[in-house]
Design a protein around this nucleic acid. Sequence first.
DNA 1: GTAAGTTACGAGCGACGTAAAAATG
DNA 2: CATTTTTACGTCGCTCGTAACTTAC
Lengths: 282, 282
Amino acid sequence: MFELHQLEQLIAVAECKTLSAAAEKLHLSQPALSRSMQKLEAELQVPLFTRHKNKIELNENAKMAVDYARKILWQSRDMMEHLRAFDLSRRTIRVGSCAPMPMWDVLPVLSSLYPAMTISSEIKEEEALLQGLLDGTYQFVFLPYEITENGIQCKKYMEEHLFFSLPPGHALSGRKVLHLRDLNGETMLLYSDIGFWKKALEKEMPETHFLVQTEFSTFHELVKASVLPSFITNLAIKKEEETSNRINIPIDDPEASATFYLACSSETAKTYRKFLQYCFSD
Amino acid sequence: MFELHQLEQLIAVAECKTLSAAAEKLHLSQPALSRSMQKLEAELQVPLFTRHKNKIELNENAKMAVDYARKILWQSRDMMEHLRAFDLSRRTIRVGSCAPMPMWDVLPVLSSLYPAMTISSEIKEEEALLQGLLDGTYQFVFLPYEITENGIQCKKYMEEHLFFSLPPGHALSGRKVLHLRDLNGETMLLYSDIGFWKKALEKEMPETHFLVQTEFSTFHELVKASVLPSFITNLAIKKEEETSNRINIPIDDPEASATFYLACSSETAKTYRKFLQYCFSD
DNA sequence: GTAAGTTACGAGCGACGTAAAAATG
DNA sequence: CATTTTTACGTCGCTCGTAACTTAC
């Protein structure tokens, strides 16, 4: 049987019209290419060139052979690409979420449980998450509601409640409870990647002037260094409370609370059993 | 880039389930196969096996790779087959004829003009010849009538007239002219491959008892050694006349004469110009 | 004379087989 | 203990490059 490199060489000859030029293109000496083509002809048991004393031309056989060779090489490259992509996908865990918190909670767990795997995470709209879960784009998705779907497991993962984080001197800092509307119109610090919470803010606080920060660390520094109101959630309060001198006041609107459900296919539930055990052990 | 023999080896491993068995099947030492598979993995940049200390299993990547490999190898073998068939067809001249005479006339010319070519010849029905001429099955066909078709050349090649070949003692051997019906009911020697003439004989001599010979040489010997009537044509009479002591009487029926036309595509007319020049030079 | 192709020859890399080691059932 | 796989090592062969030769423009 012939080999792929011979087909590549044949194509090079067909494109360059001359052995010397093709040899140069292939980083090969011209005699080596000459011999290789002779060997290809012998293996195919078919002449490919009409040989004049110092010129060769591709004959009809060769033209047909080149067409086949192109197809075969294309398929071979296709095989490599798909294999690599498939292998990569097999060694990455893709997580999608409608909000950052559950993802932040889960990413360190995943990377410590599966150190060999790449973890990729995205914040997306709910429909995109559902779609991605079904078509395999995501192994795990966090949704703000429960779903029932064939072959899909879905379980309540955590609740998140928004708080206003106010400086002690703020006019409302003495209140026990607030509504989103209460700070509408003020200037607030806001971290950009808050996912589906954005909808509630746009609805209930349309006049608020948000200073949006895309870097979480700079957002965090600005909160500490300024007297601007911001949001914080029950899940972040624990580590913050001691260090910051801010007052966290719960927000009473239904839009300011969410229950996140973790969904995945039964298949991935089986392969990542340890992870799910950890998630729902407490 | 990987090579085809590595794909063959991978498939062998997939089929044999173990390196040792696959190595034996491939007439290769087991360590050589082990190394070759390692190299394939390296070239694909993708692991193909889960390696236990003294066992290997194909992983998901490998299953995908085997599917691709089968397709690629199938295409490679397909390429060889088609190339060889194409090459063979390029070096054979296929002639079809409705009767043996024009073909016998032409075959020695073809093989002397194109000694490198294989000549293949067939006697067929007219419709099959026409069809074969159009679809490329035949380069040249002899038909008993003229045709006009786009891209097809057709020219009168020769006339053939049937004679009865009678022994001197035959009751009708003195006649100047005969009709087919005149010998109907007698016993005659007949060569089998007479093509379209058969139709005339079946129509005009239905009661004749033909002793059919499939070998021309034995037919010829029997004609010489017996007193049975047979057919001969104007084209064969010249060389026969002196040697045989038979009397050849022309047959007057229109069915006993034919004009043969040589047809071929303009394309093949160009590549076999010499042959056509020879055919129509005199 | 330059450019292209084939053949000859010597060298180096790669693939092969044998042998050895490790591990499993 | 037989079977299977991997690693080590020495050898052989294939392919490469250089060189020489031939031919055509």
